[in-house]
Design a protein around this nucleic acid. Structure first.
Lengths: 233, 233
DNA sequence: TAGTGGTCTAGACCACTTT
DNA sequence: AAGTGGTCTAGACCACTAT
């Protein structure tokens, strides 16, 4: 492993474990270069990359500090609904309505780049925040890339979490739109049919091809999508 | 200006102008270091940052190349509605409903980080795609940072374009939600009051502070927000 | 004034691709 | 074999912050 990667990992563990909380000072470039027996440029690279990733904040003349949580969530990062709910300090649970194999319709086959009628995995899950539905997740998965998808318990681990582990994603495309819900969605989300919904369509790729196609529907009254961008220079 | 910034700008201009199209080779680190009389490390930094920004792609042993357009548009980049409409090959026009100075309400003062009642600039503009309204843009601008905001003709240059020129942005925050339109919005967008709308709230900063607070409302039936992400490593 | 991060240099060796 | 990018070194000077 590269020297700068080792240093990054060392700092990453301190932050992850909670040993270094928000705003805790991070070892200086000079301190790291002696501690790890590398040049200052190498220690610098480690800190610079952590700063680019939003984990630490560097201030000239002062030092490097663990970033406050809010600036760690990069803009529109692929979010995990469970983490998001928990980060707000709220209770999270999920209900699995459907989890089975079925033949692909034309649209699904196209989205997953498979043949029409070939088997695909299909799941339908409602995610709750403090017992209020906040997301209806309908997902189609390529069985060749994730053969054990149907064997998981999605009331414990979200599909997103499971897919991230078994099939590291390399690419994702999104589409966001506002819709009025059809009656079945109203039932799953427990909303009125006049309540607008925010809908996110997402396709994700791994090195093996299209992994999954998901439709995430959120009640407009209970969900807002936020983000923050910082431009360098 | 920094040496690496000069090199970045040089390459940026080549790409922007179209002189270097997609996949066109970019000068190598060694070539740049002799051309600009800098060390290879400095030339390297310029290329590395351009790669981080998605403008070029670097391949070990081969070289650095202008990135294909699809990977250049970073997800949810600050878009200009006029460019977006024109990029679809459609006709674009705008209608200015309101453009004046007025005292800030509590909410606006808070968003712009000004005192309540202090003067702010206010504009309300409908943007059309092929004579169909696609966005209602309500914008409040900090008059200290953009004193000539009211003097522009926004049927020719969008506020976004003007603001980008006079006040380069350093930061932006967004919120996206689905709403049902109130009656005034229905009129401006020529939609039914049951049609859901996608609403984007955006605050942008320059080095001088909060520049502008904008509310962009899109008819759900005529607008979708798209994005594509590629992950490194 | 001492310590920090920001920029930059002039080398070096390596892994990889192209020819 | 020549050229490219990837990593790394051991210095240097500067701008800024803290004390």
């Amino acid at each position: 492993m590269n020297k700068f990667s080792k240093i990054k990992q060392h700092i990453y563990l301190k932050i992850e474990s909670g040993e270094w909380p928000e705003n805790h000072p991070v070892s200086s470039e000079n301190a790291l270069s002696t501690q790890f027996s590398v040049s200052r440029m190498t220690a610098r690279r480690a800190l610079q990359e952590l700063a680019d990733e939003g984990l630490v904040i560097r201030t000239q003349g002062s030092g490097t500090y663990v970033a406050p949580i809010k600036s760690q969530t990069s803009f529109m990062a692929i979010r995990n609904i469970a983490d998001e709910v928990r980060s707000r300090g709220h209770g999270y649970r999920a209900k699995v309505h459907l989890l089975k194999e079925q033949p692909a319709t034309v649209q699904i086959a196209e989205a997953l780049e498979l043949e029409e009628g070939s088997p695909v995995f299909h799941s339908l899950i409602t995610h709750y925040e403090n017992d209020q539905p906040v997301q209806l997740e309908e997902r189609f998965v390529n069985p060749k890339l994730v053969p054990d998808y149907l064997k998981q318990d999605y009331s414990k681990v979200t599909p997103h979490e499971y897919l991230c582990v078994v099939s590291p994603l390399t690419e994702a495309s999104h589409q966001i739109e506002a819709i009025l819900p059809v009656s079945t969605i109203c039932q799953y989300l427990n909303i009125d049919r006049h309540e607008p919904c925010l809908r996110i369509l997402r396709r994700t790729w791994s090195s093996g091809g299209v992994v999954t196609f998901a439709t995430l529907t959120h009640p407009g009254s209970r969900f807002k999508l936020g983000g923050h961008l910082t431009f360098k220079e």
